[in-house]
Design a protein around this nucleic acid. Structure first.
Length: 805
RNA sequence: GCGGUUAUGGCGGAAUUGGCAGACGCGCUGGAUUUAGGUUCCAGUGUCGCAAGACGUGCAGGUUCAAGUCCUGUUAACCGCACCA
């Protein structure tokens, strides 16, 4: 068959679109299937090959589901708020809206050229008011339920981007956008209380089908630990200093305390601290350090002893010294610790440097050399002496602490509340109003969307305020509560806000009276299969699960978890094995590939290049191999000349249907394609095939190479009216009986080494099998070398003779 | 330091879960077609060996009739978190 992919691909894309083949129908007799991919940020650079790989898995599954008779929702939209558009706007003095819409248009045509079967009728962009109306609405619900709060605390601040960042956006002490070092600044910040949902986010993982690697990463990010809060008295003071510990049973070994430099207790006792100058100098120094310096260059412990304040070990009553040191973080626990130098290496290092006592309370190790962190019998610990099990001694101590009223059981999370405001223009305005009389007042829901006002200059202010702060007409407003003069919040939401609920909007994208109709949500949700990048596990995935759990709690959605199943794709590396980057010059533009080799070749190659979840380098040669395969598929029409089904070929076809069907389900796309390559090799070897063989073959290939197979389908007369598409034809079924061979060639081993091959009926008896094996000349030769002591026959697998020499 | 993942030809990777290691593709070698290059087609291709055969899944042991797969120890690489009390 003559096949020109350039004309055929655009022809079929148009035909599918005209006939609305991929539009999902709300409510249907068919079973529903909701497949989701992470909607793209419409960057000016356009589509990346990574997008192709990320989307192709759900694309293939969606196409297969349609052929299997499902009502499929496979939507796409744009996550279009964000810094790149804004920075570009600053550079070129163009409105980010204009740039964004232009990029969306460009991205749309690129995505369409690959032939993805998205339901474009549901497309939306998070930066359009009809969408962010509802992002703001959900924010107001969070506010009304006490999950939004403002607090002046130390936050991650990027001096380059001039924005406050969430913990998730500053992992490793680097700004996620520009990779500058993040500094700690005390700022007034809006937080979302994601920590209130820490337990639910942890528990919810038990009910979803995510790979362990994803679950583990979420679990460690949430970082739940159980332990105890213990109150330490300060000598001659009312105040108690509370600490958090996971090993309260080592309390007898506590010989000093350390508080974080930022700990507020110090200010309250300023007058009593005789070396206040030294304390303050140390505080200033650690404040100046970046997160990187504080955590990475930390081998040498530094600190200052606080003169004039003494703590008391609540269990022994002994006086112990108090220090400040930046190895204690204000952001975890209470910002103060009890130090057990005998059994914690950090405390040990500190104690050695500052000459504090080291009292062992667990037997074992060599305290002269290092802290002992292993298990052992409790010593020097009064009522705990003799305990050998950590769990028992902790339980016993907790009991004692509670009895004496000096401590209690407690839980801590590493995860922090979500810093939710950005001092930038291109994001959802936070719908809150500051009223001098009423305090913080939410914008009434009927006034949503609170639209972004036009701005002349997108540059963030040097005063750490958003560009919106410069627009008087936006800032000045009346308080919805008292009607007095008030000021609007001028910060916007972070980039992650819009994507925290977008999968819900796809269920009802044009709704003007609600974020989505509840009946439609109940029909489509949860997402059956969500594929995306590993880099979103501790951000988008966590954030969106949080919002969904919240919406569930307030009765807006029907399930706590939004995604029934989550998978991820491995990265496509440059052909040099390095991560693709402009500076390395190893970037592959998928649009170039579509133009030169066709969308089908690109799609097939991306799915064939290796294990879906693993990184794999790009190879032009392998890509050409896939093109060759598809050309051979096009050539199949030439050999579709047989009238009679060849039994052997028929069996191969059925085996392949089974293999491809199962492999797609398990996301083993590479072996699915390999099986089709094997089959086509058999086809050509046989010389001729039947029309039925061809139809089954193109059906299997259709999800991967939809254009070529659609063209063949028409070519062989299966689409007479131009509307009977292969794309929605019935997925082939296999006959289990025909996938089973009557005879099978199996290996014959002597002492575990293969010495021959015999062809045997699958159901043949042990006697027959062994006889046939022994008849093999080479096997017989090896059997002569010793006495036969054992005969093993596993039908269909192996024969093994054990001989003794 | 903690958690996770991985290690198989020249390369990307297979192996129905303990049963013929290297499917499929790339590359390479030889041949055919072609004026040549490219394309296409045929044959070959783990290593050593003329062969018989021996060896072979990071390394060292072990279990088993049989180990890429299970167990013990070990090394390396990658990813995530990290002074988390």
């Amino acid at each position: 068959m003559e096949y020109d992919f350039r004309s055929a691909e655009s022809k079929w894309q148009k035909a599918w679109e005209d006939q609305k083949v991929f539009e999902a129908v709300d409510f249907s007799e068919k079973p529903k299937w909701y497949g989701l991919v992470e909607f793209p940020y419409p960057s000016g650079a356009g589509m990346h090959v990574g997008h192709i790989k990320a989307y192709s898995s759900i694309e293939v599954l969606s196409r297969k589901r349609r052929m299997q008779g499902y009502n499929v929702l496979f939507p796409i939209g744009f996550d279009s708020f964000g810094l790149p558009a804004e920075n570009y706007a600053i550079k070129t003095n163009t409105h980010p809206h204009v740039i964004t819409e232009k990029n969306i248009e460009h991205f749309t045509s690129q995505l369409k050229s690959v032939g993805f079967s998205f339901d474009w009728s549901r497309e939306f962009a998070t930066s359009r008011p009809d969408y962010y109306h509802w992002t703001q609405w959900i924010f107001l619900q969070l506010f009304k339920h006490g999950l939004v709060f403002r607090s002046k605390t130390l936050v991650n601040y990027c001096p380059h981007c001039k924005v406050v960042l969430s913990n998730e956006d500053s992992q490793g002490g680097k700004c996620d956008i520009c990779h500058s070092d993040v500094v700690q600044l005390a700022k007034d910040v809006w937080f979302l209380r994601i920590t209130d949902y820490a337990d639910k986010l942890l528990e919810g993982l038990k009910d979803v089908d995510y790979p362990d690697s994803i679950k583990q990463q979420e679990i460690s990010w949430i970082g739940k630990s159980t332990g105890a809060f213990v109150n330490f008295s300060l000598k001659d003071a009312e105040e108690k200093l509370e600490i958090y510990t996971t090993r309260c049973d080592t309390l007898y070994g506590v010989t000093f305390m350390v508080v974080a430099p930022e700990h507020p207790v110090l200010d309250r006792y300023k007058d009593r601290i005789s070396n206040w100058d030294a304390v303050e100098a140390y505080r200033k120094e650690s404040a100046r350090k970046t997160e990187f310096e504080r955590t990475q260059i930390n081998k040498d412990k530094t600190g200052v002893r606080i003169e004039g304040l003494t703590a008391i070990n609540p269990i022994t009553g002994k006086e112990i010294p108090l220090f400040i040191s930046d190895y204690v973080m204000m952001g975890y626990g209470t910002g103060a610790i009890m130090a057990v130098p005998a059994h914690d290496q950090r405390d040990y290092d500190f104690a050695r440097k500052f000459g504090v006592d080291i009292i062992p309370v667990i037997e074992g190790g060599d305290i002269e050399k290092e802290a002992y962190t292993g298990n052992g019998t409790m010593i020097n610990s009064d009522f705990l002496n003799g305990f050998t099990n950590k769990r028992d001694s902790i339980a016993r101590m907790l009991e004692e602490l509670e009895k004496r009223g000096i401590g209690r059981r407690g839980v801590q999370f590493k995860m922090k509340d979500w810093a939710f405001n950005r001092q930038r223009y291109w994001g959802e305005p936070i719908p809150l109003i500051h009223c001098p009389k009423c305090g913080v007042v939410p914008v009434p829901e009927d006034q949503l969307p609170l639209e972004l006002p036009p701005v002349e200059n997108f540059e963030p202010g040097t005063d750490g305020k958003s560009p919106l702060a410069k627009i008087d007409s936006f800032v000045n407003c009346t308080c919805p509560k008292c009607g007095g003069a008030a000021k609007r919040e001028t910060d916007t939401m972070p980039q992650w806000a819009g994507s925290s609920w977008y999968f819900l909007r796809f269920c009802d994208p044009h709704n003007e009276t609600a974020f989505a109709d509840r009946k439609k949500l109940d029909y489509w949700m949860p997402v059956d299969h969500y594929n995306g990048g590993m880099e979103h596990v501790t951000r988008h995935l966590l954030y969106s699960r949080f919002w969904h759990h919240f919406l569930y709690d307030i009765g807006e959605v029907g399930t706590p978890e939004p995604y029934a199943k989550r998978t991820y794709q491995g990265m496509i590396l440059g052909s040099d094995g390095e991560k693709m980057s402009k500076s390395k010059g190893n970037v592959i533009d998928p649009v170039d590939i579509v133009k030169e080799y066709g969308a089908d070749t690109l799609r097939t190659y991306v799915m064939f290049m290796g294990d879906y979840g693993s990184a794999a380098p790009w190879s032009d040669e392998s890509l050409k191999g896939c093109k060759r395969f598809l050309d051979r598929v096009a050539g199949l029409t030439e050999i579709t000349t047989a009238d009679q089904e060849n039994a052997k070929l028929e069996s191969s076809v059925h085996k392949t249907i089974k293999k491809v069907s199962e492999d797609i389900e398990h996301m083993k796309f590479n072996t699915a394609i390999a099986a089709m390559m094997t089959l086509i090799n058999e086809f050509y070897k046989a010389g001729s095939i039947t029309k039925s063989d061809l139809i089954n073959f193109i059906k299997l290939l259709s999800p991967f190479a939809p254009h070529l197979t659609e063209e063949i389908w028409q070519h062989i007369g299966m689409n007479p009216d131009g509307k009977t598409f292969l794309t929605v034809a019935k997925w082939p079924e296999y006959d289990e009986a025909k996938t089973k061979d009557a005879v099978k060639e199996i290996g014959v081993q002597v002492n575990g080494k293969v010495r021959g091959l015999v062809e045997l009926p699958v159901d043949c008896s042990k006697e027959e099998a062994l006889a046939a094996a022994k008849a093999d000349e080479n096997v017989a030769k090896f059997l002569k070398e010793g006495n036969l002591v054992k005969e093993i026959y596993i039908p269909g697998r192996i024969i093994n003779f054990v001989i003794k020499k």
